[in-house]
């Protein structure tokens, strides 16, 4: 089964570090990508939240930068089995972006420049659990890692933290995203090892 990616090969577990089941520790930052890297000029960059009743809230890059920022330090768990601990980010909490959004939708479909999508419950985006981040390790976020801005939802497998995020569509029905329609788990909790459908 080694053909999918290098990450599927087993690696020795680091001693004394608590990781989700089946994960191994890395100290570099692997780049995974399902397509060409989008290059989005900041003067054309825009982030949107689209509500279930057709209203759209938009932020330009300048408007995003003007919002209060946070500096979460979080662990990352990729479904290809690597984990990276203590990563330092800067960005805007989704609580801030949702502050003026009126919605009773339970589901979110995150969409990205380049066409990527991923789905998750709205409640997993709120209460300090998710950010739109634009700096990593004190530097502007590189395009290879999702810059200029990506979603960060560290309590779920990293495929949910959409690179090159463009918007979030709020929905009354769950709408599986790119990997969720190709065999991967709909929710993706690394601590319950929800990698594939049926896990």
């Amino acid at each position: 089964m080694g053909f999918i990616s290098r990450g599927f090969h087993g690696r020795p577990r680091d001693e004394g570090v608590k990781l989700p089941p089946g994960q191994y520790l890395v100290h570099d930052f692997p780049v995974l990508s399902a397509g060409p890297t989008p290059r989005v000029p900041l003067d054309r960059w825009e982030f949107a939240i689209d509500t279930e009743d057709g209203r759209t809230h938009r932020w330009s890059w300048r408007e995003l930068m003007a919002l209060p920022s946070e500096t979460p330090t979080v662990d990352l768990h990729c479904v290809t089995k690597w984990s990276k601990l203590g990563t330092a980010w800067k960005g805007v909490s989704l609580d801030t972006l949702f502050a003026d959004v009126e919605s009773s939708a339970e589901y979110a479909l995150v969409y990205s420049y380049g066409g990527y999508t991923t789905n998750l419950p709205v409640e997993d985006l709120l209460d300090g659990k998710a950010w739109i981040v634009y700096e990593f390790d004190g530097e502007e976020l590189a395009a290879a890692h999702g810059g200029p801005a990506r979603l960060l939802v560290p309590h779920l497998y990293l495929w949910k933290s959409a690179k090159w995020v463009q918007g979030i569509r709020l929905l009354n029905e769950d709408w599986p995203g790119f990997w969720e329609t190709a065999g991967y788990h709909n929710y993706g909790d690394p601590w319950r090892e929800q990698r594939y459908q049926g896990d």
Binding site: I4, P30, L32, A34, G35, W179
Partner: peptide
């Protein structure tokens, strides 16, 4: 694209 959770 193979450096991903699947082949695309």
């Amino acid at each position: 694209y193979g450096h991903a959770p699947g082949l695309v």
